[in-house]
Design a protein around this nucleic acid. Structure first.
Lengths: 221, 221, 221, 221
DNA sequence: CATGAATGAGCCTTCATTCAT
DNA sequence: CATGAATGAAGGCTCATTCAT
């Protein structure tokens, strides 16, 4: 009852195994269709273990989100490989590349993305936390870059819209992955392709933003 | 048994009421969480009525998709208000505007979008039909416009990527609507805002595509 | 409401068609598993027709029993082809032959047997009628023959037991037909085989009864 | 999941209680009409317990058959009280007596008979197993005795027919028990009566078989 | 008379959760 | 700590029957 948080070390195997199994099952089937029994079976633990260690299916799900978020951002932080003072162009490219890789890989890092993509469509009680602790910071991070790229004083709405344009292009490949697999069955999503996608999005967006900057200057005159 | 057609007007009641109620419930809760009892209760019909009129929860869902698709595309076709011979710029703007309105409105037209957005994340047995009968035609429609905008012989992949960029920006406002509502609670999505969104996406995309066209010409030389 | 009985002539087709279809379905699936929809579908009538013409599934079943009994006994009466004054041996042979043919054929005459065989195991509300109007008369008919064969004054129980022995051998091929089909898949039940079966049962029984008669005489001395 | 064996004594309760209750309900009402709710109510367990212990109503039924077969044959084996070298006459009498007692008693031993008698009329998916594991061995066992009684080389068909004659007389009292109860309401089926029945069947059959043996010898000369 | 539509009861099953060991 | 067993709620579906035309 009091050990829901932070007792990562108490039982070396069980809790961790449940988290891993649950992350996969939740990512594959969603919260609703995922069954406790399936998770326990994959984790080779008793059904009661979940209620013991996590109280709830719901609470387990929340813990899984934390767990998988850590996994994802440890490997692919927003500013992966950037240095202070890098140009906003570079920072944007890095942001996009990092987001795409974090989302599309088939390593455990992608679990978080798949879980969150479900939250977009069918928010659970965990949604608020995700919004505040993941989406808003990400949005803020990107807004700063976009702001610099647009230059000067730009209506906040403009920045927001451009942020949306950038992020939407990245998430699309997560959001629409099943559709894309049907539409273009031959298309692979290996490292090379992910880089190409990131490059396209970055190029596409930079072109648009630069043009926008010019237009706005013209309007301001 | 086979009277899906023909008695559209003969029985103004039950079947139609079930379809409407089901569309809402499926859109709100998804196929899995939606219960036939809830649907029937909203439609004020007996549970057995679903079995009688639609045989299955699953088959009802399929009929709901057909029904809501018709609703959506009757009001907002791809080429809403376009004329033959319109420039690709105009056709792109119209396509985007039509898509955004079809997706974001409050009216029943948006039901199809919300249903399909769930299919993106958690495909059901109806997914293949949606892909072939809705997504692929839409993609093809857009590809032609983009192809013209890019001009000349362009690698198919380029066109695909640009299509993805355009569509992703539109769908984002569907896909991320719950998140956006949390991130920017004050933001409304009335007619004016939808037009503004469509304008932004169109401007953003046209800038990028034109730049891309220039760049490619340069490369070709 | 008032026309449940005897309105065989009112609707030439419907009622008769329902009876035929119902007889087959009840014989194939039993009262419980048989569904009115299946019956109506086979009879090409509306589901409500049954309730209209027969009030009940149960009442329909009772009517089916009457109908099929008539069918069976019209073709194979107990004393088929016998003449007054025939010896009890001959009358027994005829009785057995008639019973076996009535039960085992694949013409509609066998419907009654198959229906009744279910009643043996799972009596319905129609059981009492069957017992009194079919079984008891049959038993009485056979008892007289057996009585003559045993001769003189024999304990009623003796007669009963011998009747049981004779009848049981006949019914066995109805009762156990599915089992026999599995045990001896190659075995056919055409006219020839049915005659052979009847001959065996008659021979077997006559031998036993004659021996019994001798034994009893010995005992009486 | 696979603990059908081994914990026969460990849990004296639930599983066993379900088996007993289910055996009675299935015997009384048949597979179709029997409801899991009725079974669980009699066994004083939750409806979900059946799913937990037996997965299915159908699988429960199969387990009930195994369970009741064991019960029946443990108490009344085919060769109850026989010794090696006993004459075929004695072995036939014992076989018949054993079969009659196994089938007609009030004790739980009769459950198997009642269950199987339903399978004769309305085979379920368990039928094949019953045929192969119960009927065929029984038939083979009896065939050997009959073969000896008929002596020398007899056409297989003859043996089969005599087996059928013997078995049919025994099963008749199971098959027709409801009918007999109506036809002869005063008749009891206590131990004495069962012995009398067995004696009659044995005497009747032995007479017939001996006579048949003589006749066939005559034919062969 | 006949029909399509509608009803309500009931059934089997599944699932997350809890209890007793 | 961990486990097997047990629970109650809920869900989808089927069926015989009735209603209104």
């Amino acid at each position: 009852m009091k050990k829901n948080h932070q007792n990562v070390e108490s039982t070396p195997g069980t809790r961790e195994r449940i988290l891993q199994a649950a992350a996969e099952v939740f990512a594959d089937s969603g919260f609703e269709r995922a069954t406790v029994r399936e998770i326990c079976s994959r984790a080779s633990v008793n059904v009661a273990a979940i209620n013991y260690h996590f109280r709830d299916k719901e609470n387990l799900y929340i813990e899984v989100l934390k767990y998988s978020k850590e996994l994802a951002f440890k490997k692919y932080p927003h500013d992966l490989g950037t240095q202070k003072g890098d140009s906003p162009e570079i920072r944007l490219r890095v942001f996009i590349r990092s987001l795409v890789l974090r989302i599309l890989g088939d390593d455990p890092s992608s679990l978080f993305g798949r879980l969150v993509s479900r939250e977009y469509i069918e928010p659970t009680s965990a949604f608020d936390v995700i919004v505040e602790e993941t989406m808003r910071p990400t949005f803020a991070f990107l807004s700063e870059i976009i702001g610099e790229l647009l230059g000067g004083k730009v209506p906040a709405m403009r920045v927001h819209m451009c942020c949306a344009s950038v992020i939407s292009q990245c998430l699309f490949f997560l959001y629409a992955r099943h559709a894309l697999a049907k539409l273009f069955p031959e298309q692979k999503f290996g490292r090379t392709e992910m880089e190409a996608i990131a490059d396209h999005i970055a190029g596409f967006s930079l072109s648009a933003i630069k043009d926008l900057r010019k237009t706005m200057k013209g309007e301001r005159k």
